[in-house]
Design a protein around this nucleic acid. Sequence first.
DNA 1: TACGTCATTATGTCTAGACATAATATGAGG
DNA 2: CCTCATATTATGTCTAGACATAATGACGTA
Lengths: 234, 234
Amino acid sequence: MTRAAPNPARRIREDIEARIHSGEWKPGTRIPIEQELAQRYGCARATVSKAIGELVAAGLIERRRKAGSFVAHPPVHSAVMTVPDLAELIAARGEAYRWEARAIQRRKNAGGADMLRIDGVHFAAGEPFALENRTIELAEVPAAADANFATEAPGTWLLAHIPWTSARHVVRAVAATRTEAAMLATGSGAACLQLERDTWRGERSVTHVRQLFRGDRFDLVAEFQAGAGKRDPA
Amino acid sequence: MTRAAPNPARRIREDIEARIHSGEWKPGTRIPIEQELAQRYGCARATVSKAIGELVAAGLIERRRKAGSFVAHPPVHSAVMTVPDLAELIAARGEAYRWEARAIQRRKNAGGADMLRIDGVHFAAGEPFALENRTIELAEVPAAADANFATEAPGTWLLAHIPWTSARHVVRAVAATRTEAAMLATGSGAACLQLERDTWRGERSVTHVRQLFRGDRFDLVAEFQAGAGKRDPA
DNA sequence: TACGTCATTATGTCTAGACATAATATGAGG
DNA sequence: CCTCATATTATGTCTAGACATAATGACGTA
């Protein structure tokens, strides 16, 4: 066999990506073994292995010897400098976490798309920790209409249910307005860290969130190795 | 030929890394062609190619067809959410950049190590843009003793001369003190973004810097693909 | 001098096969 | 029923060779 397609590895990678993003292969699913994929795509096993290797590097797949290759669970924790789920973050500090919704509304945005708008406050150890203003695209996340965001923090729910493929953060220092300061139990004009995050699945927007943290109770930490790789160091 | 070493690809990768970190191969240097490396290490070209491919993914090497493989310039720009050299950042906005040193001193730290302490202000378009307080480890960067930080911004100089292997950022919102506010030409108590960065080469600290930005003139942007990879999207 | 063509060259990708390795599954013995 | 040794299995890595591709530099032409 000489050559089936001009770029088999890429074709395989994209096909698998598509199956994962479409939900056909859900997190935890075991994908076919390399031999079988090689046969299915009409290429050598090394090529399949390379394609899967790239998906591993991208965080979409996990491999275990003898066990096989599995669709990875939503990769939030593997991303660098992600603010993970606040509930988890606060729990990791050993403090009690609570979410308090202030307003939940359905709206249409400028384009006429159905949106869910959620405002609320995250509490840590009984004290306000962060304000959140979020919109969720109902077209992209229809299940959100049935979730109970009065009791469950929307970020936690989304992380557990919705995979994302790209995100963009903007971090700014802002002064709290009087209303915001009151909700955060701090002084008017206090320095706050504002984090805005847009999240997409493929080309389509999933959610937009603005979180406002008291400057004296929160900081962001990011660690880097030279470059972006995350190879074994030893 | 059956097998020279248990893990040739890794050996090659680490050897090249070592040459880069030691400074033997400086940024911009063209490294030997894959054929020659294959011969030198006694392995197949595909193995060399794989090793180099990993170094590319890690941002240490750049490859250009026909031209060859080159040691990448210090990888600040490829790192996610890095604040690159401020001079470059401001130039990219099309604004004039200027560095103004306020104080340059030699000190010993608690451990008795020689340090260079530099304080100054970055200007963009004639207005103060960021305050900087930096210490440089002279043991690790002896050449810094001869650099003229009165005229050249230390960050710019370091980027051009010193490779780093890991960095840690801490981002916070803080209120400007009266002195700081005056230097930044803003009001006392104004919300500012404070970025602290510790940089290491291998196990040893290279520099620590604190930069303070006016909240209304600066924000940090970070983009993520799901996972850590940075593959071609199309 | 300026420009288009073409051969060269180094990387990019793939194949088919081989052996290594680790984790699971199985079966024997207690 | 439990435990340990063993066989199996799927990934991990490598080789030698082949062809594809893009960028460069040299050459010839306008």
